[in-house]
Design a protein around this nucleic acid. Structure first.
Lengths: 193, 193
DNA sequence: AATTTTGTGTGATGTATGTCAACTTAATTT
DNA sequence: AAATTAAGTTGACATACATCACACAAAATT
């Protein structure tokens, strides 16, 4: 249950077995069935979640009712709305399981305790957030400069796992295009050999 | 020279005078004249910079030669390509002064030393990166769901300082639209009262 | 103050992608 | 396995924004 989390930690920092034992006590295992929500827009994000199994999406719904996917999270990834989690403000995001999932949840008090007790995790989370920032910045710049097709091809190359496990209209929604456009792009690509 | 940096630190963490004195020794003051570059695409980002005075932009140039602005940095902000800085890989970004600037530079060895000597800064930088991530995620979602005009209005509201100090075609380039489009949006807005 | 460079505004026209709608196929649920 | 619901495809048409072209204004440089 906690193996994957442990692996992820030690990839970036060193942590004693004892500390990790303590760490375990702070996480709440939680199963989510496909289509269940962990968070809905307007709610405060009580938890930040580590995805141990399954795949989730974080998304917003705009004025026209169109969904926009911020992130997919597969095994070994974190999912959460840091802003809402830290400030107790209502979240702008929805989080939903796209397959049956096993999550490890941590709430704010435990989170604070964790960082206080194991300061090395401060570093772990900085690195995590940093990598996320780097990726998000690239995605943003790509959004501004690339055609829909290029974005799609890059997504396949960087994240084929999620692309294969998730319905196409959600890929479209992640790319910021419509399902129709993605469908057409795919058929063009296929016909071009 | 270091007052602003100090203020920024103590907004988020506590740091002793002694530690800050040490900290000072690691930063290299650097003046940049308007239009000078701190970094060009393809170079390795040797430094991360704190903007003490002036305003800078970080941008990419795409295949068609069009510039896309990732970030403006005004007084009190950080500027840098974390990825290139940490990995020594060549940067995708260009960084340029838009006014005469005073920067405080720090290189990788000093950076490592700094975090080792003053672990509380680990926290400072985590918070910094976190806030940046939150803002970048919002911008990304906005890119996907908002019209050019809405993006522009929000930018004015959130970042009027930069909007006023920077030529309009750069605002357009930050918003991911052409200068012509921004010009038209502005004239429509003006005519609507 | 003359000249060059940089920035802005506006019309005519083009295009990638969106929208609407109908149909097909696949996956869930009963 | 029938019925429902969700997902994907394809065509006709619409639209926000880009592109091109040029005029004009402001700022920087000589």
């Amino acid at each position: 249950m906690y193996q994957l989390l442990y692996d992820k930690f030690i990839k970036n920092i060193s942590i004693s077995e004892e500390d990790f034992e303590f760490c375990k006590t702070l996480f709440i295992p939680k199963k989510l069935r496909k289509k269940q929500f962990l968070l809905q827009e307007g709610d405060v994000a009580k938890y930040t979640a580590f995805v141990n199994k399954g795949i989730t999406r974080t998304f917003t719904i705009d004025d026209k009712g169109i969904e926009h996917i911020l992130q997919f999270a597969v095994e070994g990834w974190w999912m959460g709305d840091i802003y809402s989690f830290l400030t107790d403000e209502p979240s702008l995001y929805n989080m939903e399981a796209l397959e049956d999932c096993e999550l490890l949840l941590i709430n704010k008090p435990s989170w604070d305790q964790l960082l206080e007790k194991i300061p090395a995790l401060e570093r772990y989370f900085r690195i995590l957030v940093q990598n996320n920032l780097i990726a998000t910045q690239r995605r943003l710049m790509g959004t501004m400069s690339e055609t829909a097709e290029v974005k799609y091809v890059k997504l396949i190359n960087n994240f084929s796992d999620a692309v294969q496990r998730v319905p196409q209209h959600m890929i479209a929604s992640y790319l910021g295009i419509t399902r129709e456009t993605l469908s057409r792009i795919r058929s063009q690509m296929a016909s071009r050999k």
